[in-house]
């Protein structure tokens, strides 16, 4: 079943406010979201609350979703691209319980998509909102853990150190050896962590028609990319940004363009590759079946 509007196992929990957060907290987060959209890629500090799920497990994304979601919404939750990974299931159940919200696995049916580590393969539309769970919002914190320093670098757009770090890779390996959480420059001004999505997904952020919101609960930061905004992955003229690619295709749906996960199938190291985006893969498998079926009929 890909959609359901009411989960008999959970049911709305009367003991808590709609979507768990109290209205005052939602207002504070909503104000932060509006400012985040006004300054694309800038991390807005916000009064993150403790949630009933642990920090690091999506509390930032959950707080953003809880502040945005309403009864008319349909929510999709993915982790590693999949709707059925345990943490995605757990977060979806949380919203069914505290907001009694309709859910879906279909990208195009969802008004809000909360994600960890992936952007769906299916392009998003105007009006859709994608909420990213972010563990480490500041790309500069790996270079200097002192917030007082990184805050200055952001204030004056002093991003030379980041560029230098990437260049050290080139000097050593001949190419940039960063594969995920690959830093981007948003609207030509703010350096931003795209969250730990593979760099394969980075180009999807650029000029996306949807609203992209990022929540980091433990680090208490919210940021955003408005629709149709320039999002440039850092690179060099002589070493342009490049994405991962696979020589094979998905063993289930045959896709040659999606992000593939490696699955080990036996003790002797046998392995296959399958789409990380389960909704996309299921759709393609259904389409293949359909095509085969119609071929038989004709």
């Amino acid at each position: 079943m890909s959609t359901n509007s009411n989960n008999e196992q959970s049911g709305h929990n009367e003991g808590y406010n709609f979507a768990y957060l109290d209205e005052q907290t939602k207002r504070m987060i909503r104000r932060s979201l509006l400012k985040a959209l006004s300054i694309p890629g800038y991390q807005v500090p916000f009064g993150s609350r403790e949630m009933p799920l642990p920090y690091g497990w999506g509390t930032g994304g959950i707080q953003v979703t809880a502040s945005v979601i309403g009864p008319k919404d349909r929510l999709k939750v993915i982790d590693q691209g999949a709707d059925d990974t345990t943490n995605a299931v757990s977060i979806r159940r949380f919203f069914q319980m505290v907001a009694d919200v309709a859910t879906t696995e279909k990208v195009l049916e969802a008004s809000i998509i909360q994600t960890r580590h992936r952007i769906p393969e299916t392009p998003l539309n105007e009006g859709q909102i994608i909420v990213y769970q972010v563990p480490t919002p500041d790309p500069l914190s790996k270079i200097d853990p002192r917030e007082s320093e990184t805050r200055k670098m952001h204030a004056y757009a002093e991003y030379g150190v980041m560029q230098l770090t990437l260049y050290e890779d080139i000097a050593r390996f001949g190419h940039i050896a960063k594969t995920y959480d690959y830093p981007v420059l948003v609207n030509g001004r703010h350096l931003m962590s795209p969250s730990p999505i593979p760099k394969f997904d980075n180009p999807k952020m650029q000029d996306n028609p949807a609203i992209q919101l990022y929540g980091a609960g433990r680090e208490k930061r919210i940021y955003a990319i408005p629709p149709y905004t320039t999002v440039k992955s850092l690179d060099f003229d002589d070493h342009p940004f490049s994405m991962q690619s696979w020589s094979g295709c998905c063993s289930l749906c045959g896709s040659t363009t999606s992000y593939l996960d490696e699955v080990i199938t036996d003790d002797s190291g046998g392995r296959i590759f399958v789409c990380s985006d389960t909704d996309y893969c299921n759709d393609r498998q259904a389409q293949l079946l359909c095509d085969e079926h119609s071929e038989v009929q004709t």
């Binding site: 982790d79 590693q80 580590h117 594969t179 959480d181 593979p198 992000y259 490696e262």
Partner: peptide, 11 residues
């Protein structure tokens, strides 16, 4: 938590 998308990238 699962990190297999990023692990795949590192692999």
């Amino acid at each position: 938590l699962p990190h297999y998308v990023d692990f795949q990238a590192e692999l």
